[in-house]
Design a protein around this nucleic acid. Sequence first.
DNA 1: CCTTGCTAAGAAACGCGTTTCATACATTAT
DNA 2: ATAATGTATGAAACGCGTTTCTTAGCAAGG
Lengths: 308, 308
Amino acid sequence: MANIRDIAKATGYSVSTVSRVLNNYPYVDEAKRKRVLQVIKELNYVPNHVARNLSYGKTNNIGVIIPYTNHPYFDQLLSGITEMAFEHHYKVTLLPTNYDAKIEQAYLEEFAAKSFDGLIITSRSNSLPHLLSFKKYGSLVFCEKLPHRQGPCVYIDREHALAEGIRYLQDQGVQHLGVTLGRHSRISYTSKVTIEAVQRFYPNFDVEQDIYWNCLDPIMGYDAGQYFYKHGFDGILTNTDLVAAGVLKAYPTQKHPKIVGRDNLIVSDLLQIPTIDNHLKQCGEQAFELFYQEKSDQIRIPYKFILR
Amino acid sequence: MANIRDIAKATGYSVSTVSRVLNNYPYVDEAKRKRVLQVIKELNYVPNHVARNLSYGKTNNIGVIIPYTNHPYFDQLLSGITEMAFEHHYKVTLLPTNYDAKIEQAYLEEFAAKSFDGLIITSRSNSLPHLLSFKKYGSLVFCEKLPHRQGPCVYIDREHALAEGIRYLQDQGVQHLGVTLGRHSRISYTSKVTIEAVQRFYPNFDVEQDIYWNCLDPIMGYDAGQYFYKHGFDGILTNTDLVAAGVLKAYPTQKHPKIVGRDNLIVSDLLQIPTIDNHLKQCGEQAFELFYQEKSDQIRIPYKFILR
DNA sequence: CCTTGCTAAGAAACGCGTTTCATACATTAT
DNA sequence: ATAATGTATGAAACGCGTTTCTTAGCAAGG
């Protein structure tokens, strides 16, 4: 493959002149410009992007740390990021961690090594101070509320969103409330907030008996539903619409519990499940914007409780 | 930010020695190795990945040309690619085209410019010969059946998969078959195959009246369903489970048509919609493997018709 | 006629690692 | 004792664009 020096040689002009043609500088003789372009075509020359990036010190690439794809929560976030990145001529590189702190660490090092112009952290496995120590290498945007002035972030007002969902269940007369949550091994911040919110409305809520952990999809939701049905739960607060759908499936149709889903997924519309829409796509868009505008704002994305 | 020459200067050793330490070469004096590592730590030095890539002529990055994310078909494909890439220490960069040939072209040029070690084309907007002309710049893997010996690809046996779905509908006694399809502006290969397959089983199939175009999600599926219900269609072949779910919603529960979905999405399980599972995740995995193993095979991924 | 300013274009340095080549000493084999 | 290996390390070239610095021709302004 030809490089810029080959083109210089073939045309008889200098490397600088070729570079000037490539970058549309003024002050290049029209005849020479044409000749250069012609030779470029003849030799099938394409400027090496990596070399360019090295020279510019910039890659136009943003990394997104994400546990995994193909999960509605993260896919929505990702689609917001991707769309916005696209508009600003950035590319998005997926950095799946599977919640492994070691892998996350490896990505952070690649970031420090200038592989990406920025990093959006949709969910993290290392401690916040550790992650923040990488700020010196470039711009980091978090998808969680950071302590004041610690850097750019977008976040959801989970507390109020959950409160509204739980109040709805209470208003519907729910006596025995069950809750589905995700990973039990490393309990997420969201799970913690959920438990606290529920306890405020249901003081007798039993953390041991009334939570069904490790719910991520309808299959696990179905398991949860069987448990809840057997034990006479009449209201369920779920961690995502997918799980809500599974839960409902486990109850006989006439005995459906009051339920609240999350993420406003298509299923919740199809099955008429009330849901908390956290506008994740918008979160993703804003996260990218924060990176792009080099702002250090803390943006709260409004949620919306959708009654069906 | 320090670079390798700074480290060389600070230690008093040569750049080569520092590089040897970084790359775990044998034949470096133990004391020097330690000293180098110490200085690296002190100066907070991280080797520049872009420079390394330039030197190696390799990025460990694969690009995935995709119309958009957040669509079940592509997200499944993507999750297969991402998982496999992860296992082989590759990163995945998303290249959304929105079916715009110009944008696709831009990505192809970036590929030629060595931004990626390979390209997986999940769907394309330019002509096949045009895309194939980029083979000289690196390895291209297609997610569609290529003409013999034209390069690596994974594909689905759509013809047989569809035939099985349509035969099922016929066996169920469907008289008036409706079909939902995607984009009408640039009709996809899949759409063409679908029409041909239907015509084989239903010789009177009317391309004008019996197809509802531009169906991508349940909303559009609902529209299609209203049309089909109004005109007395008793069987629907849909282009994805999401659309199937929408179609059903438009029919009164007692009058549900016979229906066949696609992609084996969670909704189809929840709503008991028979579906054609094309094992898209597996497609993605195999596509990456073809790239990684530098094979030029044509891999057919078996489909599965799932009765409910 | 001389200065200022614009157009044009090349040499060389720069961004930053990796790798080849060359050198030199210390062993070990013959 | 000598040739052949093995260990250790530096200088310089390389991968490939971009950018700064310099030089230089030529026209307009004073």
